[in-house]
């Protein structure tokens, strides 16, 4: 892979990346670069279109005899499993409603009133139950998202309490009036980085701060995410996509175009080792 020498990934390697035929060792670095580089990402998108078109225009074969029936049978089984659950719920509701109504007909007036109220309550609960089931189904994507968020938070917590994490404080260079400060927590082994900053002045429209890892090997800086401060001048970069096993000699922050740069183009405003 020849990224360090040139700014972008060669087309041949992007083609292999798109096909998934690269060796595992090259994948991480390339994925990190693609996630940061608009040009490579766009070219990869074009290659994927080319490949999808190539795939979709291959000669078609007929599916094996009976494949449609086998598929529909699986479909039926899938649908039947859910339908069985719904039917069981419905049957229990119908049974309760019927029994309540019979009891109501056969009972004396005071009990009729009471059992009528009970039946109404049961009917309401059944309706409410169905409503809740519907609501729960509607919220399933949100539950999935929250589960993912929880997993990420757990990972973040483990990282912050990890023993093999470097902690670096970044100071202004040159010294600015509002004393901006940054703090980076970095694990080279896992390629995980959390950066927080405070007292940062706002950036001009179309610009953003960009965080850089300065490799100890002296290789070019590795982009580790763009960010803009909030009204109080606070900002954070959590788990940017960066390659693992990069020993950091230091960290720096520059002001770049909002979409990020492949290499720093302006003076360092914060740095730390």
């Amino acid at each position: 892979m020849s990224m360090p020498g040139s700014l972008h990934i060669p087309e041949d390697e992007l083609i292999q990346y798109a096909m998934g035929t690269l060796k595992d060792t090259a994948l991480g670095t390339m994925t990190a670069h693609i996630s940061m580089c608009n040009q490579c990402r766009a070219e990869l998108g074009r290659i994927q279109v080319d490949l999808a078109s190539f795939a979709a225009t291959q000669p078609l074969s007929d599916v094996p005899a009976g494949a449609r029936e086998r598929f529909l049978s699986k479909l039926n089984y899938d649908a039947a499993t859910e339908a069985r659950l719904i039917r069981a719920q419905n049957r229990s509701r119908v049974y309760i409603a019927t029994k309540s109504f019979q009891n109501w007909l056969e009972s004396p007036l005071p009990l009729k009133i009471l059992s009528g109220a009970l039946a109404a309550a049961v009917a309401f609960l059944a309706w409410d139950d169905a409503n809740h089931i519907h609501q729960i189904r509607q919220t399933q994507p949100e539950i999935n998202r929250l589960q993912r968020d929880t997993a990420e938070l757990a990972e973040l917590k483990n990282f912050l309490h990890g023993s093999n994490v470097q902690e670096i404080t970044l100071h202004p260079k040159p010294v600015l009036n509002k004393e901006p400060e940054g703090k980076a927590l970095y694990s080279a082994a896992s390629g995980r980085l959390v950066f927080t900053a405070s007292n940062l002045p706002s950036v001009p429209p179309g610009k953003a701060y960009e965080l850089w890892i300065l490799p100890a090997s002296g290789k070019p800086p590795i982009a580790a995410g763009t960010f803009t401060p909030d009204m109080q001048g606070n900002a954070a970069v959590v788990f940017p996509q960066i390659p693992p096993d990069v020993q950091a000699g230091g960290f720096g922050v520059t002001v770049e175009n909002a979409e990020g740069s492949a290499a720093p183009t302006s003076p360092i405003v914060l740095s730390g080792q």
């Binding site: 998108g45 999808a52 078109s53």
Partner: peptide, 17 residues
Amino acid sequence: TPLEEMVIPEPRNLQRA
């Protein structure tokens, strides 16, 4: 490595193509 773990960025022109 399974392919589904790979990043597939923005194949936004697939539809038209």
